[in-house]
Amino acid sequence: MPVLTIEHVTHYKYRQPVSFGEHRIMVRPRESYDQRLIEARLDIDPAPADLRWLHDVFGNSVAIARFEGRATGLRFHSTVRLEHAPVAHHQIDVEAYARCYPFTYASEDMPDLLRSIERQHHDPYRVVDTWARGFVRNDGATDTVGLLSDMAMRIRSEFTYVPRHEKGTQTPIETLKKRQGTCRDFAVLMIEAVRALGFAARFVSGYVYNPSRGEGRVGGGNTHAWVRVFLPGSGWVEFDPTNGIVGNRGLVRVAVARDPYQAVPLSGTWAGMPSSAAGMDVSVEITLEDAVEPPTSARQAVAGSPATC
């Protein structure tokens, strides 16, 4: 099982001393059967007057820092060491009734999935709907995992990844028109598209790394964003449209939310002259202690064992 060390540093700089309001920090990975924390440390300079931890409505770990005094900089340094167990595409085991699209979620699951199926962006001309329906076969024989994999792969191959450090995301329609965006934009597009087809989907913020030298990953050097879709039999399954990943290989979850604004890694306020702000530096370094061999591509594996629809 690979062991990772993740160093995440965010440094705010100011030209003269400013005061700081409350800051909300989401950098501690979620613990689960596929990722186990060995060590987690959060260093803040200047030290906060008060630091407390809580779980938000989605079960994400959140640190709340409050400050006193003034300073010309504010630095957050998260160090995490964890075991990460890759779950590959061929391990996705969907219940028989859901292997072919369309299907209906079980009645006992629907009350908890409804808000994750609900659309978040206006689409009056059904632009996203039309694009999403293009992945459904006209004869009705559509493999569920194949549909979702094809969508992730299509975004990876036909859209251009362009880093953008400003907050917020493009609307799905903007991303479709521009054919480019960040990992956040691609995640939001895929979430809205699969929701248009009736799937429950959530936004994920975390880290991406190269499991081996033979695999390239886009979106490193900062936090990363992707999608989770609920599939009966396997639960929440990862799909990264930026890299075309199906399963969690190379992906470390930190925050899971219904909407991107609920999974911002770091947010807060400061008070001072508007000209005081001198910029922000962010760096993420991931060290892999135990490399593993790269798998067959996700699309090849899905094509090799299709469901009978």
Results as ranks from 00 to 15, higher is better:
residue 172 P to N: 10
residue 222 N to W: 13
residue 201 A to L: 03
residue 158 E to W: 07
residue 179 R to A: 14
residue 175 T to N: 09
residue 208 V to L: 10
residue 222 N to L: 13
residue 185 D to W: 05
residue 169 T to E: 09
residue 188 V to D: 00
residue 181 G to R: 09
residue 204 V to T: 14
residue 187 A to W: 02
residue 219 G to A: 12
residue 187 A to G: 02
residue 223 T to A: 11
residue 175 T to M: 01
residue 177 K to D: 11
residue 205 S to H: 02
residue 157 S to M: 10
residue 176 L to W: 07
residue 218 V to R: 15
residue 176 L to A: 02
residue 214 G to T: 14
residue 162 V to L: 15
residue 180 Q to E: 15
residue 190 M to P: 01
residue 196 A to W: 04
residue 180 Q to D: 10
residue 173 I to M: 12
residue 188 V to S: 01
residue 149 S to K: 11
residue 186 F to A: 06
residue 163 P to I: 05
residue 201 A to K: 01
residue 161 Y to H: 14
residue 215 E to C: 11
residue 172 P to Q: 11
residue 156 R to Q: 11
residue 155 I to F: 07
residue 216 G to M: 12
residue 175 T to F: 03
residue 196 A to E: 09
residue 189 L to C: 08
residue 185 D to P: 13
residue 161 Y to C: 07
residue 184 R to G: 04
residue 193 A to N: 00
residue 195 R to N: 07
residue 157 S to Q: 14
residue 208 V to Y: 06
residue 198 G to T: 11
residue 202 R to T: 04
residue 193 A to R: 00
residue 178 K to D: 12
residue 200 A to M: 04
residue 219 G to Y: 07
residue 183 C to I: 05
residue 207 Y to T: 01
residue 175 T to Y: 09
residue 213 R to H: 12
residue 196 A to Y: 11
residue 151 M to L: 15
residue 196 A to K: 09
residue 151 M to V: 06
residue 168 G to S: 04
residue 170 Q to K: 10
residue 156 R to Y: 06
residue 214 G to E: 15
residue 212 S to C: 13
